[in-house]
Design a protein around this nucleic acid. Structure first.
Lengths: 174, 174
DNA sequence: TATTGTTATACTCTATAACTATA
DNA sequence: TATAGTTATAGAGTATAACAATA
């Protein structure tokens, strides 16, 4: 409970001590060998496991900064599309507009993003990275790259490229 | 709001009408082309998108039965490991024991799973599929197979196998 | 009338911690 | 003391619906 940053923290998921289980289970598999059976052949199950592992690593690496996967995605999209509206951002992230409000509220409080009024349409804002947001994003990117290398440690370049391609096919709009 | 089954339902996520957006966006991409930039090269982002899409399809196909991905996984694991304890199930699913309690509560209410007392250890239960649970699981499996074929429509057999292999590597315990 | 951002509200999932009853 | 299951509680994430301001 550090006083400074009460918001946007949270360690999330999975207690650290639980990790030995898998090792122990594989070492003396005969003892209790819980079979996952058909599940290991299902895309959804494999995706969930992989995603939990990757997100856990992301949180471990970046929650100190108050950065979550969604917040990083938001920063990256604003950086690549300066002046984007909240509604457009919601469509890109595929979340509800109300979700974007909270996301931007948080990033604004962290002084990483600003809502700038638009003359052409007084209903909406143009989202921009602040100066601090830009430098923070550079720093965050380096950490994300390290995280990425860590979770892809068991894949070579070709395999990773291929995996991304297959995931894009599965994740493509129907 | 059908009176019969008030629990365990919920359509979840993403409004149906929203689906046209992606089509329109690709058709007239030039108009607003929001760039995802670096994000599309990140495993975590690709995993999230794929998982959302796959889970949405799962819900659409199976929530009528009151079956969610987690509940299906639970049924499958109990089927493959009859008599398993709740703690062991929690370890296998990689969730907290308290989460298993609710999961089993629900499946018990659906008359799919039973907690059976163990003589050797009066603290724990042996989990089993009920008779109805077994027949339901057969039916559910057929729907899951159809769902699986649908979300893997853009992959051939070899590609799917490969994808599962790569996902297992990424999702493997560190 | 339709859209943007917003607020209010609710529900799911999952976690931690404390409790009980055994072991 | 340690473990199995349970309960209570809390927080993150996301959804829907209704509203004000603006188009």
């Amino acid at each position: 409970m550090s006083a400074a940053k009460k918001k946007g923290k949270r360690a999330r998921r999975r207690s650290a001590p639980g990790k030995k289980i898998a090792i122990a289970a594989s070492r003396e598999a005969a003892q209790r060998a819980v079979s996952e059976g058909e599940l290991s052949g299902l895309i959804g199950y494999a995706l969930r496991r992989a995603q939990l592992r990757v997100f856990d690593d992301f949180y471990a690496a970046l929650s100190v900064e108050g950065i979550t996967p969604a917040r990083f995605s938001t920063l990256a999209i604003i950086d690549g599309n300066p002046g984007i509206s909240q509604t457009s951002l919601a469509q890109t992230l595929d979340i509800a507009r109300s979700g974007v409000v909270m996301l931007i509220d948080t990033l604004e409080q962290l002084d990483l993003v600003s809502r700038e009024p638009i003359e052409a349409d007084k209903r909406s804002y143009a989202l921009h990275l602040t100066r601090g947001g830009k430098t923070a994003l550079q720093r965050i990117r380096r950490q994300v790259a390290i995280h990425e290398a860590r979770v892809c440690a068991r894949l070579d370049e070709k395999e990773k490229k291929w995996l991304l391609k297959m995931l894009a096919r599965v994740g493509a709009a129907r």
